[in-house]
Amino acid sequence: MARDRLADTMTLPIPSYVRIEGIRNPEIRFRWDDWDVEAVDMPVDEALQARLAAMSQRAVAAFTIGASEWLIHRFSGLTSELLPRQYLEAAWAQLCDFHYSTHFDVDTDQWRGPVRGPMGTAIRRVKFALRQADVEGNPEWSACRLSKLIEHVLPDATPYLDWRDRIIDRFVALYPFKKDDSLGDPVPWQFADPAHVVRPDDAEALLDEFIRGLEGSQNPFMNPPEVMVAQGFKRTPYRFSLAEDRQARWEW
């Protein structure tokens, strides 16, 4: 039933790269303290932070969203909660433009325990990475904390670490950090899948197809067009043009 309801409100499939045998092991063998998350996700890995800093801020945010799929899927057999995956879908939309979903706060009281606690923390890390990209801040810090958390909760982190290395190499090559354009182009969600054959010229069409598919979405995190316009969105909602996106960055 939960799966049917999710299908009715989701455009994105569960990524193939997280469908690893054993990842949804129901046994909880890691320590968890809702009041001391820093014990498992700090200090940040400075080498990882430096690698992430070599890519654009949108690419860092895309990496953070893609990485969080590992954690959300790890616990998907232990909860029927729909919101995490709905939020990740909206997060990919925010990479096209931050007006597509309103920045909101996660009620930590609703996300506690060894299952919901890590899931709520992952959502907060994605949210913070997007906010930092939006203001040209430091999304790498949040990405590093999330990565460490993922390693902590997975039954076997080896497949995730392999994915992490491959996607970082891919994003650094495709979306290198540029001082005069630190935000960079949006990243299609497909590019986070190592099995996807990346053709950079396909990016605009993939982004437009994705964002068009969300028009009229029942996803509670997506903003309707009138809200986007009221918040200052000056282009056509639920359409994507790379030229318009680049022009908006230049004017900004």
Rank of each mutant, 00 (worst) to 15 (best):
W92G: 14
K179M: 03
F75A: 04
R19I: 10
A195N: 04
R131W: 14
Q231F: 11
P118S: 08
S68P: 04
A61I: 10
R24Y: 01
P200H: 04
L242A: 11
Q190E: 13
A62M: 06
E27V: 06
R212Q: 15
R116G: 06
L174S: 01
L183K: 15
W70G: 02
R74A: 06
A129F: 14
L154P: 02
Q190H: 11
T11P: 06
E209T: 15
E226D: 13
W70N: 01
I123E: 05
V126S: 07
S217A: 13
I28K: 10
P186R: 12
D169P: 01
V187N: 08
E209P: 03
A54I: 05
G22I: 02
D109F: 12
S80C: 04
D34E: 13
E251D: 11
R112I: 00
Y175F: 15
M222Y: 06
R85Q: 04
W163F: 11
P155G: 08
D105I: 15
L242E: 03
E226Y: 11
R85L: 09
P26C: 08
E226G: 09
R131P: 00
Y17W: 10
G213K: 14
I23Q: 02
W70T: 11
V60G: 07
E226T: 08
I23V: 10
W163L: 07
Y87V: 03
A143Y: 09
M222G: 08
E27Q: 05
F233M: 09
D109I: 05
E151L: 06
R199M: 04
V40Q: 05
R124E: 13
A39E: 15
V44M: 02
V106K: 05
P194E: 00
E226W: 13
D193Y: 03
G66I: 05
V18Y: 03
K127A: 11
L174M: 02
L154Y: 01
P139T: 14
H73N: 05
R131A: 15
P26F: 10
I23W: 03
F171L: 07
W32K: 08
M10L: 13
I168S: 07
R19M: 13
L174F: 03
A195C: 00
D109S: 13
W252F: 09
N138S: 12
Q218T: 14
D33C: 10
S101A: 15
L207P: 02
C96I: 15
M119S: 11
F104G: 06
L6F: 11
V44H: 00
R112C: 02
P13T: 06
A62H: 08
D208C: 13
D33N: 13
V198P: 04
E69G: 04
K178P: 01
Q247S: 07
D181L: 00
V115R: 10
L83P: 00
D45R: 03
P200I: 03
P15K: 04
L52H: 01
L207D: 01
A203I: 01
N219Q: 05
D33M: 09
F240I: 15
A243V: 09
C144Q: 04
F171E: 00
A67M: 10
D33F: 06
L78R: 00
R24N: 08
D109A: 12
Y100A: 12
R199W: 03
A203Q: 00
R29K: 08
R170H: 03
F233R: 13
R124N: 10
A205Q: 00
D208P: 14
Q110P: 00
T11M: 14
Q218E: 09
G213C: 14
K179W: 03
P139Q: 10
Q86M: 10
K179V: 05
W141S: 06
A90R: 08
